[in-house]
Structure formats: structure tokens, C-alpha cells
Design a binder for these strands. Structure first.
Length: 556
RNA sequence: GCGGAUAUGGUGAAGUGGUUAUCACCUGAGGUUUCCAACCUCAUGUCGUGGGUUCGAUUCCCGCUAUCCGCACCA
């Protein structure tokens, strides 16, 4: 097991920068905290991780990919709860000027103060008079919301609307629900995936790629009928995994056992946990440095019912890289309330239900002129009345006593057949921090060994995400070996989804070392024999083995 | 955001109030070399940024930006 040390970390980050995988962005202008570039090697690595992620989920068969804007109108994120929740409330000590988080000042008495509103916090602070942790005085100014989303204006000048850069891709999937629902012919379950950028104006980005202000995320929103018991196949995950449960602490058990015991509160969450683990291990994450941690009820996001993080161990300790949340009906309901649009699915009953309606309603032709503006409210009140009501009666509507007479009302009696009902689907969301995952796979694949007494580094990146598939090396750039190597290189590059590098500088050993350092799985060497018999040497990064292969049979 | 430290070629380091800032590796060109960081010659490329002190600042001082370490934060 690789030892993580700060020395190894600095060698790794130095290599990533030197070899063009990951670099601080805008460095010639002094840099900018929390912003990183994927360089000439990293760019393709990121792309392949994204593509592998998409392929992984699309293989389920009921998943579509969509792509939504990052610029998002204010109303969308207000409806989702982000404007209200995605911020910290700060208040300044008027004596020393130190800013403190308002919820922290009262959390002795209210352990879950994070969930309090601004007004509640203000009244609690004036009541409890907490002391300033800096100067000890108790004299607090107004509470201001420090929002962690990037503000922007959509449009210019006065006509510009307020907006934000999205803090997650998820909202686009929810606001597109009806289109996705129609695409799937209105049959649950189905899911939508999206990979793209998200933004958070972090107060203090730290730890390199771990906390970024602009980051790559990949999210799946999987819509399910809460009344249908899902059937998932857990048989491929027979080994126990490390779970840190809210109630039981760290335990080791299989996913199916954890679902059966109710530790994982929904089978689909458990299924996605297993599927997520498969994806991560496939792209090079060390399974021994992976664990699942359940959110405690107090740290759960405003939308979640249950949430399991995948944490990966690397140079910065255990870092949450994936969150698998059961969001219930929170999001669709929130957007439905804000817009009045129906964001529901239709559930057909096994047997149509008949509902006897027996009650009263108004006779519009009489009641309308009689009650005028109040007629609508009278109608609602009348329809609430039991069938055995008798008229005339007196109703109190908006403080007015109204006499409702026989002539104003009609008996309502009929039998309705209901074939089904509209309901708000529930959502299970695996949300991946791509940058954190890429960081950890590089951290896990970075191997320092010795070769003839010298330190030797190689990246054991799996072939499916290797940024470079193959390098083509002429033993010497003379006698036509260079030309032959270049033609092989061009042929490989022209193939679908294959990327080759041509490298002719330095000794052959140096070039193998360079290829190993960025994790190129295969090297092709063109030598004198190649000119005659049209064969080349194919060298494996991981085994160092070399075999002779005809140029016409190179398989990439 | 607070406290502390740091900032010198692509990378890692050395050094200085005064002529042209040093070294290794890397990179490029040429030579040599018949498959795992070899060697020879030559070449490219640096004092984060703005201000101050000074005849003169990469060096001293201040601001800014960034990085690292604590604290705090982490939907």
C-alpha cells in the first residue's frame, strides 16, 4: 500500500504540472485560487473520464444525456432552495469588527442552528446575547447572508435579470423533467445524466484540486415511483464494503445486507453505491482506499432524505468524492410550487377506483349575482360541506356573515371512475466530483519504484482512460525509421478514439520513461528490422514485456 | 476570513544592496549509440506583482496576488 506523504505529494504535483496534466490556471497573470487547467495531457484524461462515466450509466438502458446552461435565472435557484440555503449568515461584532457566523454563535443552545432562518437567528442572538469569540463583547450588527453562488446579470443594463452560475447540474434535469418524461413515453423509472461545470464562490479554496471554485461535475437524476419496490441485482457485489453508518459507526458488510437491514434506507441508493464503486475501480481507484459514509441527519442537505458519500483516501486524507442522495420529491415539488407547472408522473391503478361524490356546489346563475366578488370563496366553502347539510345557512366569509339559501346551491351527486393518479416521482441522485475523482485516481496510480538504483515513476492508469493510448518511437531518426514511425503514428491517430504521440528525442530508455510517467500503456518501437519485415516492437507499460508485431496487425 | 511561513528558468534548488544571477534535471539542435532516464558539443529559457527607501533593489520596507501550514469553513 502506497504511503501518502507531503514529499510524495509535492513530487506528484510537480510532475502533473511539468508533464501537462494539471496546472494552476492563469499563472502568467499571477494565478487565481481555486481554478485549475487540465493541460495537454490532462485535457484528454478529463474527457475520457467523462465519457467513461457517461457510458457507465447509459449502459443501464434507461438513461439519457442532456446538457443545460450554467447561467441560471435567479428564480430557478430560489425555487430549489439554494438562494435561501446555500449561504452562510454572518454578523459583525460592532466593537472589534470580527465577522462571525450567526448560527455558530447560538449553536450551544441550538445544535442544528444551520437550519434557522435569518429572522430566527436575529431574535435568538438578541435574546441569548452571545459573546464575541474574538473580543468577548456582546454587541452584534445586522445579519447578512453571504451567498456562496457566483452572481451574474443575464442581459445588460436595466433590463438585465439577476442570475447565478449553477452550483450543481441537477436543477437542469429537474426543470427539463417533462421533456425527459415524454422521451421515455411516460414510464418510470428513468434517469437523466449531465456532465459539466459547476461553480461555488468558496471563501477559501484549499488543497489543490479538492476545493475548486469552478469544477467538473457529473450527476445522474434517477426518477422512481416511491410506491414501487425496486428490484436490483446485488449479486455482483458479494464482498463486504466499508460503511460508516449514522447509527452503527464503521461496519463491514455487503451492500445487499446493508439494504436488507435498513442501514441503507432505499434499495436504489444501495444499487447505485455498488455501481459507483464499479465505475471508480474501473478507472483506477484503489478499492482499499474507498469507503462509504452516511450523512448524519444534522448534516444532510436541505433536500435529502438519505445520503451516502463515497470517500477516497489520498494525500489529503479521506475526501468525499461522490454523494448518493435520496432527494425524495423535494426538487420537483419545489419547482412545481414555484411555477404552477405539473412535474408529475401518472400512475395507473391496477383496478380503476370509483369515487362517489356526494355533496353540494353553488348554482352559478343565482349565487354569482348574489355574492359577487365572494362567490368563488363561497363555492369552495360549500363544496367542503357534508352531504347532509341543509339550507339556508349562514357562512362567515372574510369576516362577513352571508346567508346561503336553497336557491344558491345545487346538489352534486355522481360516480367518478379514476384510472390512476398523478404523483411526484422520487429522485435518487449520484453526484460525482470529477476533479476530485481524477485527482484521486492519479494519486492512486502514481507509483514510485526503483530501476537500476534510480527512482522511477510510473502512472498505472487503466487503458480505458489513459490520456495517450500509445507512443511511437523510432529507434533512430535515420535510414527511414523516422518516416516509417511517423506514418504508423499518423495511421493510429486517424483511428476512431485513438491518440498516439510521436517521440524521437533522447535515448530509447528515456522515451520509455517519459511515456511511463504519464501512463501511456503501450509503446511501439520502429527499428532497422521494421524497415525490412514490417514488424515493430510492442512494449507494455505494466509488465515491460516486448513482443514483435506486424505493423498491419496493430490493434488499437 | 484570522494567524504563521513562502514566492528565483519548464521542474527542483543555491545566492547577492553594485559589471553579464548560479547549479542539476528537463527542453531544442548536432554528433555518437542496434530497445529501458548513457555520453559529447552547442543553444533556449528565471528573480510573482505594484509601490516606497536608495545614486543603484532580485536582495530592505509596505500593499496586492498566489502557494503551503494551523484555526475556521466545507450545499
Amino acid at each position: 500500500m502506497e504511503e501518502y506523504s507531503s514529499e510524495r505529494l509535492s513530487r506528484l504535483t510537480g510532475m502533473l504540472k511539468r508533464r501537462g496534466l494539471i496546472l494552476p490556471a492563469f499563472e502568467i497573470h499571477g494565478g487565481a485560487a481555486g481554478l485549475y487547467d487540465y493541460g495537454p495531457v490532462g485535457g484528454r484524461l478529463r474527457n475520457r473520464v467523462n465519457q467513461t462515466w457517461l457510458d457507465h450509466w447509459q449502459s443501464l438502458g434507461n438513461i439519457v444525456e442532456i446538457s443545460c446552461p450554467t447561467v441560471t435565472p435567479y428564480a430557478v435557484l430560489e425555487a430549489s432552495g439554494h438562494v435561501g440555503e446555500f449561504s452562510d449568515f454572518l454578523t459583525e461584532c460592532t466593537k472589534c469588527g470580527e465577522a462571525s457566523r450567526a448560527d455558530h454563535l447560538v449553536e450551544d443552545k441550538y445544535p442544528n442552528a444551520e437550519s434557522l432562518s435569518r429572522d430566527e437567528l436575529a431574535s435568538l442572538i438578541s435574546e441569548m446575547k452571545p459573546n464575541c469569540p474574538n473580543c468577548g463583547e456582546s454587541s452584534w450588527g445586522n445579519i447578512v447572508a453571504q451567498n456562496l453562488m457566483f452572481n451574474t446579470k443575464i442581459g445588460a443594463g436595466k433590463s438585465g435579470r439577476d442570475g447565478f452560475l449553477r452550483p450543481e447540474t441537477a436543477q437542469g434535469m429537474f426543470t427539463s423533467f417533462t421533456s425527459i418524461y415524454r422521451h421515455f413515453r411516460e414510464r418510470l423509472p428513468f434517469g437523466a445524466v449531465q456532465v459539466g461545470k459547476g461553480y461555488r464562490n468558496e471563501i477559501s479554496p484549499r488543497q489543490g484540486m479538492i476545493r475548486l471554485r469552478e469544477f467538473n461535475m457529473a450527476e445522474l437524476e434517477y426518477f422512481i415511483d416511491p410506491e414501487v419496490q425496486p428490484i436490483h441485482d446485488f449479486s455482483s457485489w458479494s464482498a463486504p464494503v466499508c460503511l460508516i453508518s449514522d447509527e452503527q459507526g464503521e461496519i463491514s458488510m455487503t451492500l445487499s445486507q446493508a439494504v436488507n437491514d435498513g442501514i441503507i434506507r432505499h434499495p436504489t441508493v444501495g444499487f447505485f453505491m455498488g455501481s459507483t464503486m464499479d465505475f471508480l475501480v474501473n478507472i483506477g481507484i484503489n478499492p482499499n482506499h474507498l469507503r462509504f459514509r452516511q450523512h448524519e441527519s444534522t448534516e444532510m442537505a436541505h433536500y435529502a432524505q438519505d445520503c451516502w458519500d463515497v470517500e477516497l483516501l489520498g494525500s489529503y486524507g479521506w475526501i468525499e468524492c461522490v454523494g448518493i442522495a435520496h432527494r425524495g420529491c423535494y426538487d420537483l415539488e419545489a419547482h412545481e410550487k414555484a411555477t404552477g407547472q405539473r412535474l408529475r408522473a401518472w400512475r395507473t391503478f391496477k383496478e380503476p377506483k370509483t369515487v362517489e361524490i356526494d355533496g353540494w356546489t353553488i348554482d352559478g346563475a343565482k349565487a354569482g349575482p348574489a355574492f359577487r366578488a365572494l362567490a368563488g370563496k363561497v363555492k369552495s366553502a360549500i363544496e367542503e360541506l357534508p352531504a347532509e347539510s341543509s339550507f339556508p345557512m349562514t357562512l362567515n366569509i372574510d369576516g362577513q356573515e352571508l346567508e346561503v339559501r336553497d336557491e344558491h346551491v345545487k346538489r352534486l351527486q355522481r360516480t367518478e371512475n379514476m384510472a390512476g393518479e398523478w404523483f411526484i416521482p422520487h429522485v435518487v441522485e449520484p453526484a460525482f466530483g470529477i476533479d476530485r475523482i481524477i485527482w484521486h485516481l492519479l494519486d492512486h496510480c502514481y507509483t514510485e519504484t526503483e530501476k537500476s538504483g534510480e527512482t522511477y515513476t510510473l502512472m498505472t492508469i487503466p487503458e480505458i482512460i489513459a490520456p495517450v493510448d500509445v507512443t511511437v518511437l523510432p529507434l533512430y531518426e535515420k535510414d527511414g525509421m523516422g518516416e516509417l514511425a511517423k506514418s504508423i503514428h499518423r495511421d493510429l491517430c486517424s483511428r476512431r478514439n485513438v491518440f498516439s504521440i510521436y517521440d524521437a528525442s533522447g535515448s530509447i530508455g528515456r522515451r520509455y520513461a517519459r511515456a511511463d510517467e504519464i501512463g501511456v500503456p503501450w509503446c511501439i518501437t520502429v527499428d532497422h528490422d521494421s524497415l525490412n519485415d514490417k514488424t515493430v516492437t510492442l512494449r507494455s507499460r505494466d509488465s515491460g514485456e516486448q513482443i514483435r508485431v506486424p505493423i498491419s496487425e496493430l490493434e488499437f
